[in-house]
Each structure stands twice: as structure tokens, then as C-alpha cells.
Design a protein around this nucleic acid. Structure first.
Lengths: 191, 191
DNA sequence: ATAGAATCGGGGCGTGCGTTCCGGTTAGTA
DNA sequence: TACTAACCGGAACGCACGCCCCGATTCTAT
């Protein structure tokens, strides 16, 4: 999977990258209902080319999601390395911000029965592993209460992502984010 | 809109209600991609009957959402009347719980470009009005911090709803809900 | 430079869905 | 009970989209 038998011809690689980029932007902005022909047209290639690189529409979805997920994980790792105590909060905020654009994807794939865990188990594991790692660092630094686990964080991330749903106005999320942060911070007096 | 020129024949009313119910359950469980023919089949009527009551698929969506929204508002009002201080929390929890089933709707409509505010402005106003009302009661009772507004609550509701997105397991939401509640409760020491 | 092979492009096929239409049927009324 | 108007069912239409195919084109290795 990591090493290809042959390194893919130059123009083919170029086209593949271009299709992936255009598809990401288009689906995020206009939903998954956009036809492949339209993706091809905007990428300046024929429909056949798209289908050669991504044999089915679903496989194109998978490639997009895997790509985005990998990027966000890398950025989160960098943030956490810079400041372990703030890392998790930075991760949450990053995801919430990114959510403004990626929400299009989330919504688009929601209706198609696309299940991340079973479609891309590897990417899912990488993501959850990173969450657990960064969470542990924050808890050791004492900035996040110890009784939350990685699954809770994931749940919160999903919620934060969804909060962009109305009007694409990120103002709402920005107002609510401090509340979430306060909820996660260690409480001196526990109720 | 409230008074019809003629009160709709008995069988027609029966069929309409039946289609609405079946459509709600089906879309919630299997997504908005289910064909109208299938809805009709399950409701035990012909496709023509569905289209007579709901001239387009979108109008069927609207009727379902308006129905659900109205029901949830009524229940929220009852909860708040019973205990003004707990009303808002009960409302939040109700929505979060209901989200487990209604999430199907949310996701189903997310991909279709369905916008509540512009599709059903009246229902939206009723909903937001109720939120504002119940929030005000809770704030007067001193159970919710005074610096949050109705829009913030709506944002949180959207997030809570979305938290069911993975595995339909309501366990995740139940673990996170107390965090949200703690964040909304009045803070004795403000940071 | 040239041969050979992989890639490109876009026209075309099949399918499935939203919507319409009309002959048969059934609920209300006198 | 008989008449009428509204309602019912499901066959049929048109369209849009996913996917396949093949002649023309472009890249790489010798």
C-alpha cells in the first residue's frame, strides 16, 4: 500500500492531485450531490480520468476524508508539541474553526451512509490515537480534568463541528467555545 | 392556513397522517434518499396519494420537520412550566435524547440544502421564542449564568444533537451532557 | 528520435428516482 | 338509496447521474 509497483506517470499524478483538490472544494461547498462529470469539468479533465484514479464515487470520498484527516492530525501534533498544556484546547479550536469549511463535507457525507470507522479504520485509529495522546499530555499538565477520556473529546469535537450549521457564521461557535473550555478545565470544587 | 375551506375527507385525512408518520420514521431511520414510492408502499397507499398531499418531496420534508419541531416545543413548554429553574436543562436533555432518533432527519436533510430558517420561518420563530422564554426563566431562577443568550443555547443544542453521530450510541452524549450543564451553571468565581 | 505503453477525453448505456396522469373507487349528501 | 365530487392507485414519462469503453494523445525508456 505504501510502495507502488510503478511511480505513476507525471501527468497522471498531476491530474490525480488536481481532481482530489477540486473534489474537496466542490463537495465541501456544494454537497456530495455534485455529479462526477462536474468535478471532472472543473478539474479540466474527462470523466474517465476521474474514474481511473477513483474507481467509484465512494472511493473519491474516502480519499478526500483520509487526506483532510491526516492534515488535521499533523497540525494538531505540531500544536501539542509547542505547548502540551494548551495542545488539546488548540486542537479543539482548530477543528472547530476548520469545521466552517469541512462541515460541508460532514453534512455531505452524512446522508450517504458513509461510516468513517468502517471505511477508513486506519485513519480513524490514527485520529483517535492522536486525541488520546494530546489529551493525556494536557491532563498531566493539569489543564484538563482527569475524568474525561478520548471518546468524550471526540464527542465534543463532533458537536463543535456541527455548531457551524447555521448561516456558516462562526460567531456562534466562538461564543460557545469558551463555555466548552470552562467545562473541560479542572474544577477546584467538584459537585 | 388555520381554517381550511373544506375539512378534508375522512380517508384523505387518515392517509395524510399515515404518510407523514411513515415518512418520518423511514427518513429518520434510513435517510432522505429513500424513494417516495417506497414511502407510499410502506404507508399502504399509491405514490399518487403521497404527491397529492405533498406536491413535492421537499414539501414532505417541511411537513415532517414542522411537525417534530412543534411537538418538541410543546414538551419543552410543559417541562419548563413544571420547574422553571430546571426547564432549560430539561429542554437541552430532551433535545439531546430525541436527537438519537431525529438525528437521522438532521443528517438526511443536511445534504439536501434544506434551510430551516428560510423554509419554515414561522416554526423557527416559535422555536427560538420558546428557547428565549425558557432561558429567561432559568436565568431568573439563578440556575443558568446570565451572560448566555438564546442563540448560544441554540448553538449548543445543535452540537448536542450532532453528538449522536457515531454509532447511534447515546452513551457518548450522556457522558458529555453533565459537562455542558456544568458550563452553563452560574460560576461563583469568574475567570 | 522512435517505439511502445499507459493515460486522456467524452460520448453512450443502463438504472433509479421524482413527478404526472387518468380510469376506477369510495366517502359524503339529499 | 342514489348521485356526485373528491380521492385512490399504479403505470408511464423524462431526466439526471454513475459508470464503461475505445480511439486519440502524451509520456518514458532505449
Amino acid at each position: 500500500m505504501t510502495d507502488r509497483p510503478r511511480p505513476l506517470r507525471a501527468d497522471a499524478a498531476r491530474n490525480r492531485a488536481r481532481v482530489l483538490q477540486v473534489a474537496y472544494e466542490t463537495f465541501a461547498a456544494e454537497g456530495a450531490a455534485v455529479p462526477i462529470d462536474e468535478i471532472a469539468r472543473r478539474a479540466g479533465v474527462g470523466a474517465g480520468t476521474v474514474y481511473r484514479h477513483f474507481p467509484t464515487k465512494e472511493s473519491l470520498f474516502q480519499a478526500i476524508v483520509a487526506d483532510r484527516l491526516h492534515q488535521v492530525v499533523e497540525r494538531a501534533r505540531a500544536l501539542a508539541a509547542a505547548d502540551p498544556g494548551e495542545g488539546l484546547y488548540a486542537f479543539l479550536f482548530l477543528l472547530a474553526e476548520q469545521g466552517a469549511t469541512d462541515l460541508g463535507l460532514t453534512e455531505a457525507f452524512a446522508g450517504t451512509g458513509f461510516d468513517l470507522t468502517e471505511a477508513l479504520p486506519e485513519a480513524e485509529r490514527e485520529f483517535m490515537g492522536t486525541v488520546a495522546e494530546i489529551l493525556a499530555q494536557a491532563q498531566q499538565a493539569g489543564t484538563v480534568r482527569p475524568d474525561v477520556d478520548a471518546a468524550d473529546i471526540k464527542t465534543l469535537m463532533v458537536g463543535l463541528q456541527a455548531m457551524h450549521r447555521f448561516r456558516g457564521d462562526s460567531e456562534h461557535m466562538r461564543r460557545v467555545y469558551p463555555l466548552i473550555r470552562a467545562a473541560l478545565a479542572v474544577q477546584k470544587a467538584e459537585g
